[in-house]
Each structure stands twice: as C-alpha cells, then as structure tokens.
Nucleic acid binder design. Structure first.
Lengths: 189, 189
DNA sequence: CCATGAGTATACCGAGCGGTATACCTAGGG
DNA sequence: CCCTAGGTATACCGCTCGGTATACTCATGG
C-alpha cells in the first residue's frame, strides 16, 4: 500500500502527466507539486518508469470504477454509457483527450506502460462486446458491432485533445445510437 | 526553397521524429543522421519548433499527394481509398500509427504545429465528405456519413501504434464498406 | 529507551537539451 | 580576383533531466 506521501505523489503525477505529457514533466516537478522531496518520491516508486506505470494503472482503476457505477444505474442499451463515462468522469479531466492514447504516443517501444495501455483498451472493447451480448441476446454479430463502437469512441477521444473539447464523443455517441438499431428495422417500418 | 543539406535534415527529421517521437529526438541527433552540423540545421530552420512544423507539413504533403494519386486511379466508392492510403503509403512508415495524432499528444498547448495537425485532419474529413457527395449524389446525409467514416479511420490509426500493425484500419475499412450501403436497401431487398 | 521507518532539506552527479560562437574551407559568379 | 553563400568542425552556454548521497527530524511501538 502507498504511504500518505506516496499517495500525494501519485495524485500530483496523475494531474501533471495528463495535462503536460509524460516527457514534459520531470520528477522534480511532480515532487514539488506533491509537496514532497525527490528522495521520498524515489523511496515510494523507485523510478520514473514505475511512477508512470502507477499513473496509468490509477487512471484506469478510477475510470473503470466510475464506468461500472454508471453501468449499474443505467437502462439499456448500456453500451452508450461507455461514451458518457469518457466525457463525464469526475476529477480526471478530459480536455486533453485520452490519457492512454497520449501516453502510447510518447512511450518508447518496449516500455512496460504499453502493456497497461493495451490491457485498458482491450478491456473497453471487451466491455462493449459484453454489454451488447447481454442487452440484445439475439443480435447477429455483437463482436463486430463492439469493434465498430470501439473505433468510433477511439476516433472521437483521439480528437478530443486536438479539438480542445469533447464534441466528437457526443457525435460518436449519436452515431452509435443509430448503429445499434438493427438495420433491418430501418427499411421495414 | 531548401538547400540540399536542408533537404537531408528534413528527411532525417521525418524519419526520426516519427519513429522516436518529437520530444525524444534532439536536434543533435537529427543533424548527425543527416550528416550535417547543428549550425547548418539552424541556418535552414531557425529552431526546433520550425523544424517540427516543416516535418508535419512535409508528412502531410507527401501523404496527400499519394492519396490524390490513388484517388485518380480508383473506381467508386472512392472513400475507401482513404483507408488504403493510410496503410499503403510508401516511405513514410505506419507501424508507429498516425504521425499527426502522435505529435498532437506530445506538443504543448499553443505550439504552432497544432494548427498544421488540425488542418490536416480537417482536410481528411472534408475529403471524405467531398468523395461521398460526388460518388453518391442522392445520399441522404453525406456529412454525417463522412464524420462516421472519419471517426472509424481515426480510431483505427490511433491504435495502429499500440497494436504494432494496421489490422484495425483494414477492419475499419470493412465496416465502412457496409455503412456506405444505403441502410434502406438492406431491409427492402 | 531507543531503534526503526517515513519524512525533511540540500547538494551533487553525468548526461543531454536547445541554441550560439569562433574559425576555417570551398565552389561559382560579378 | 575576390567576395559571398553554404558548408565544415568544435567548443561552449545555461539549464534541466533522472537518479543518488549525506545528514537531520520526529513519531510510534516493542
């Protein structure tokens, strides 16, 4: 478990790494923002690489818990809630886009943080598939629809940082809503 | 116009910036890869910021020329060619994903390179809309379909760097192919 | 009682960063 | 003939990077 000081370091890192980027923020800046010396930071995390991993894990855990909470309270189709959770999640911020995509763009090949990122993204895609299967058991190809919703979401969040706002996520959600209606219904009504 | 040495610098930067990331590559490394002194690099580009802008512009110009070439030789629906061009373009490499999304994730707010990136992405989205309008003049909402294809493509290329290959772009292309069939046809046949 | 663990403050290390300065070389054109 | 443009090579600047070292404080609990 993390000491109180370690918790403050991770909290400061989560804020700074997201807002400024991994390579743009030094350990000294993180330590200062946490009100802690570099020695304490290294006693808790050992290296910047470890701190980066902890940052990504924390970011996933917090967001995932929020997603599950929203899903438990939502009506069908729950897949749309995933879009909302990306925009609405409290505390983490979203104006700089997806923390995981941003990190993946910065990390060098072979960095262990990339595994955390891959697991996070795969979890999101798998969640789409799970929700679609459960909410519409008779659907023809839930895996394909899951990939479709996933790509829409990823395209939208990838542009959130560029646009400066999340309007494309809302747009992607609207498109997803249409796609989730069985296409056969459109023509036969 | 660029001197021969300047051209070599830009060529080396295009390779290194894409493969390693903007912040991970110093001007000294670019100069050495180009077989040129730092003095020459600064005589040609003035600053790393300017070199970064030139890199992004070059990347856009080369890819765009290739896209137009492919479009001129393609049959309808030409929108699918945009997906192909992202995967097939020669020389630039695509295993690290989209150079523009990667750069956007690294650049600090206010960096002039962000404008180049926004223009590039808007050009792609607008090209989708243009192609859809021309290839299927009677379509109900080409703008919406353009946004849809754009988001699919962007989601796919955003993951190309994470996955290490471009299979999601192919997947996005297949999905796009289905979406471009008028949904009313599906139910009424 | 005092040892341990968590923390502080400060200074340091070698390396690399973006960018500049000095001095020299060389081919082409007025 | 010699000046200029576009190079070369090398050294330097102040700064920041990730990471370490030394020495001190202080609360807790066996």
């Amino acid at each position: 478990m993390l000491t109180p000081a370690g918790e403050r370091v991770l909290s400061a890192a989560t804020e700074l790494f997201y807002r400024e980027g991994l390579n743009a923020v030094g350990v000294a800046a993180v330590a200062e923002a946490a009100g802690v010396t570099k020695k304490t930071l290294y006693a808790c995390f050992g290296s910047k690489t470890e701190l980066t991993i902890a940052y990504l894990r924390r970011r996933h855990d917090v967001w995932w818990a929020y997603l599950e909470e929203r899903l438990a309270a939502a009506g069908t189709p729950r897949a749309l809630v995933v879009f909302d959770a990306y925009v609405d999640h409290p505390g983490l911020g979203s104006d700089r886009g997806c923390a995981f995509l941003n990190a993946a763009a910065e990390l060098p090949a072979g960095h262990p943080g990339l595994d955390v990122i891959r697991r996070h993204k795969e979890a999101v895609r798998a969640k789409f598939a799970e929700l679609l299967r459960e909410d519409a058991p008779g659907a023809s190809d839930p895996e394909r629809l899951a990939e479709q919703l996933f790509l829409l979401l990823e395209g939208a969040v990838a542009h959130t940082g560029i646009d400066g706002d999340a309007h494309r996520v809302t747009l992607a959600r609207e498109i997803a809503e249409v796609l989730m209606r069985d296409p056969r219904e459109v023509g036969t009504r």
